[in-house]
């Protein structure tokens, strides 16, 4: 654990809920665990240190993120300087100057960063949970055989696996082709679900807005796009590109629409997951922020109640979004690979 005392002069600053919420929603280079004011009146932040990995001058560079938390905050790096500004690493001059272009956005260039950020850390936590849960379940299945009555963790995972296999995958994809996509779709479902749930844990190591991050949803959407189109049948491509049985005039309009449709489907998947999870985080944070805006404990019962309701709703949204993403991906795969009916 890394602890660091900072100047305790923030008491007088007005509370900015938008800044607080955006700070929580966006990625960070260290994982904040808690803050307190010590006996000397200094504000102490406890952060979980995360490694920074940069690609610079044809080589990978590793250092810990606390390097940026030094008071000067401008880190000499080879022949140049780095500065962490709003949780993003920029190349700067020795003074750490941040330049803006005419649009108001930052003009400094950024090194290619493969850092283990808060979201990446959360991602690893999610993956470990998934692998641990299903690895343990699989071990039980191998040890006890398929005919034994399910016990323990099997009872937890079996109904969900059966639901995903039978009601999502096999309902959309022809049975003989469904088995090929089952490992991918099962992984997809639990990957989204568990990462949503990890994001809902309000303290370390949860609370990162991973599945509400556009990079995360975009990656999954691209994988869906590949899964849909790489295995597309001749029939699917013929209908898409030639549209048999449609008058020529209609074809001129129809075919571009169809081609755009290939891309809008995963684009919709990407935005839906991103918007739902981010919105959930924003709402919960906004309700919590009400205490600090009104500056009264009297509103706490109401905000806690509202938070509870919202968190319960978010638990529903967590599985619902995993379900929708998997269902739509299965549906699109089904449309692409199924034989003509």
């Amino acid at each position: 654990m890394e602890t660091k005392a900072a100047e305790s002069n923030k008491e007088d600053e007005p509370f900015d809920p938008a800044y607080m919420i955006m700070h929580h929603i966006e990625d960070a280079h260290d994982f904040h665990i808690l803050s307190y004011t010590n006996a000397q009146g200094e504000k102490v932040d406890i952060n979980f240190p995360l490694p920074v990995i940069l690609w610079h001058n044809k080589g990978l560079h590793f250092f810990m993120s606390w390097t940026f938390r030094q008071p000067e905050s401008v880190v000499p790096f080879g022949d140049t300087y780095l500065r962490l500004y709003h949780e993003k690493i920029y190349y700067t001059d020795s003074d750490g100057t941040i330049l803006y272009n005419e649009n108001g956005s930052i003009a400094n260039s950024k090194p290619l960063s493969f850092s283990i950020t808060k979201n990446v850390f959360s991602l690893f936590v999610g993956c470990l949970i998934i692998f641990w849960v299903f690895g343990a379940a699989a071990k039980r299945y191998s040890k006890r055989g398929g005919l034994a009555v399910p016990k323990g963790i099997q009872l937890l995972v079996e109904p969900i696996i059966l639901f995903v296999r039978d009601d999502i995958i096999r309902a959309q994809i022809d049975k003989e082709k469904a088995d090929k996509f089952t490992p991918y779709l099962l992984t997809l479902f639990f990957f989204i679900w568990i990462n949503n749930l990890v994001g809902l844990i309000p303290f370390f190591p949860g609370s990162a807005n991973l599945s509400g991050n556009i990079s995360f949803t975009m990656t999954l959407a691209v994988i869906s796009f590949l899964a849909i189109n790489v295995f597309g049948s001749k029939h699917y491509w013929k209908h898409l590109l030639i549209a048999p049985g449609v008058p020529f005039i209609a074809k001129i309009f129809l075919i571009p629409v169809e081609i755009v449709g290939i891309f809008t489907k995963p684009f919709g998947l990407m935005l839906r997951l991103f918007a739902n999870i981010t919105a959930g985080h924003i709402i919960i944070l906004a309700i919590t922020a009400m205490i600090f805006i009104i500056r009264s404990f009297a509103v706490a019962p109401m905000t806690i109640l509202l938070s509870l309701i919202m968190i319960s709703l978010e638990f529903l949204v967590a599985i619902l979004q995993a379900y929708i993403f998997t269902l739509l991906t299965s549906l699109f795969i089904g449309m692409a690979v199924n034989e003509e009916h």
Partner: peptide, 26 residues
Amino acid sequence: PGLIFWTTTSFLILMFLLRRYAWKPI
């Protein structure tokens, strides 16, 4: 790009590991 890289890597590794060690036996 960093998060895209890690998400892709994690998802693919997880998918192959799960396919081998979880989905197949289950």
